[in-house]
Design a protein around this nucleic acid. Structure first.
Lengths: 201, 201
DNA sequence: CGAAGAGGTTAACGCTCGTTAACGGGCCTG
DNA sequence: CAGGCCCGTTAACGAGCGTTAACCTCTTCG
């Protein structure tokens, strides 16, 4: 309980997580030293151990946070759509839009999310995988409701492929590479929708 | 010039490259030690230095090889389609099919191709990036011919996203995870085609 | 036959890097 | 004002790992 957190600038812990995620995304988990992360927040070296148990713990917290945000956000959107009685196509659109927002706004996190999972200690890796699986299953259910007749194994593969499509933004290194955020989002959305529809044919 | 190569089993050099690519894909470039690679081919440790200048050199050779194969194969397919006077849509289909074959048959290489590029020494990295860029430009040209009215920046982004879609197979760890090779290939093909067509709308 | 070279071996060096130890200085609180 | 606690510092340890050295054994060929 850090008591006075939340409503002011950025706690040291959050600074560290932010810089760590940026560096991990740029150079990979093993390409970044503990000293590098320290330097990025203005302290040097082992000072980080006042805030985290170790380098692994930072990655764990980042990955669990990402996976949770994705799954929880997805669940919320689908529930909202269903509560409002909207058709399954719109729930699917909400999932797509949510994922695109995430991929465009938190490029670094998306990169970690499908690149650095292997380096977690066994227990944490299982936890993250579970969250990822739940998120995927959510998509699969909604996709099958939106496209009746789409068999489950194929839906799973199709959703998997669409994740690859949406996460491809991670390689556009600088934000200026995007012609225009809204336009890029619209393009990805059309492509994702079409890719899912094509799976059902 | 290794003289008597090619027509028999597998030269020691090729064995090493094959095992190295598998291990790099599984555990990442930094997650694999030189001793691991040696053990995988039945020799141990520094014996590899009889065949390669170093660990970097193995990765370089793998990545340059992959990028070259992709680009050359793509060029060949497009030229064949054009020489036969077939429409641009069919050339695009040929590109898609070629990439899918590669992604399904050489999963490890595809993984390296978009995951481990950062670890190359500067000069080699530029070389690989050049090949990758040429491959992408080839797709962009064909896509714009197949879909008139698709502006170039959008075509580039769309093709990029489709690469993400097609390369998503890398996360299906075991080959047995694919329900059926032909079916998976067909699904990916439909999705890629639809994602490109949707970009043109 | 004898020199050369290809392709192994084990031992050892040296660097990087995560982690811990030992220490110090502000700041709150009894 | 004294004792903790928070949060830094620098120094040092220890493991892992890429690379090199020194050495050995076949095979080949003049």
């Amino acid at each position: 309980m850090t008591s006075h957190a939340s409503a002011h600038a950025l706690s040291r812990r959050e600074q560290i997580l932010r810089e760590a995620s940026r560096l991990f995304a740029e150079r990979g988990f093993h390409g970044v030293g503990v000293d590098d992360i320290g330097a990025a927040v203005g302290v040097s070296g082992p000072a980080l151990y006042r805030h985290f148990a170790g380098k692994d713990a930072m990655l764990t917290e980042l990955l669990v946070g990402i996976s949770s945000r994705l799954r929880d956000g997805g669940l919320r959107r689908v529930e909202e759509a269903e509560a409002a009685g909207r058709p399954a196509e719109e729930a699917l659109d909400a999932l797509i839009a949510g994922h695109i927002d995430f991929a465009l706004d938190d490029r670094a996190l998306i990169t970690l999310h499908d690149r650095e999972l292997d380096w977690l200690p066994e227990a944490d890796r299982k936890r993250v995988r579970r969250l990822q699986r739940e998120y995927l299953e959510l998509w699969v259910q909604v996709a099958r409701r939106a496209h009746p007749g789409l068999p489950e194994p194929r839906a799973r593969a199709a959703v998997h492929a669409v994740f690859g499509l949406l996460n491809s933004t991670r390689r556009l290194s600088s934000p200026t590479n995007l012609p225009d955020r809204a336009e890029t989002a619209a393009l990805l959305h059309r492509q994702a929708r079409a890719a899912l529809a094509a799976a059902a044919r």
